[in-house]
Nucleic acid binder design. Structure first.
Lengths: 108, 108
DNA sequence: CTTTTATGAAACCAAATGGTATCATGTCAA
DNA sequence: TTGACATGATACCATTTGGTTTCATAAAAG
């Protein structure tokens, strides 16, 4: 229930539309910083900052290849978010149960 | 893949730890602004702002009861987030397929 | 009617955030 | 080696954000 620093960094990383777009781009294939930058109307430096935030959140993985840095999607990164949401799964179930028993009572 | 204003407001709402804590609290039962405020070391005004952001994101629902305002969790609110993540489901599958066929080739 | 009580709203503030420009560094190619 | 290219790093700037304080309003209690 308390927030682990990890889940905070993930939610933080997902909060920005540019960063979510970057994740979508990386779904297709791995990209260097320059390649990612081509798709946005902002400087490479700005894109690099976004990539750093995504990396801090564990959503992407960076590999140095010569003088390039290749950014790839990290499947495990979304784990903390899924875990957090799973905490609410019981809520939906409870609400369904309440509805169900309300209907039962109504029949009797 | 483009960001609907809705999904942005949801991700934005989820980005703050205080707001995520509020959601966890509301999982138990509906609460007024004053009741939510009791659990935090900040003013009611600040908590109200957070509740407004959560409401804008469609994550909670507010009902006026006399002079009180009751805040309740909105199950449907997390929909946009789930939808967004589902876009990546294919990615996991693809990666698994690649791994699988790599193993197959290795056997032959 | 007067007084609490619960909230709404606005002005204000410090810190975080997204962005730029600039310069340094390391690597590939000639 | 020299030059071009991809990135790292820093300082700086405007806006957003999370927070407070203060005052206004509306409903419940006496």
């Amino acid at each position: 229930m308390p927030d682990t620093p990890t889940s905070q960094s993930v939610f933080r990383a997902l909060a920005d539309p540019t960063r979510r777009d970057i994740l979508v781009m990386l779904r297709g294939r791995d990209l260097t910083i320059a390649e990612v930058s081509e798709n946005f109307d902002m400087t490479r430096a700005a894109v690099k900052k976004h990539l750093t935030v995504l990396s801090d959140g564990g959503l992407i993985h960076m590999t140095t290849r010569g003088r390039e840095r290749v950014n790839s999607l990290n499947p495990a990164g979304i784990g903390p978010v899924r875990d957090w949401f799973s905490y609410f799964d019981g809520f939906w179930d409870d609400r369904l149960s309440e509805l169900k028993s309300a209907i039962e009572k109504d029949r009797q």
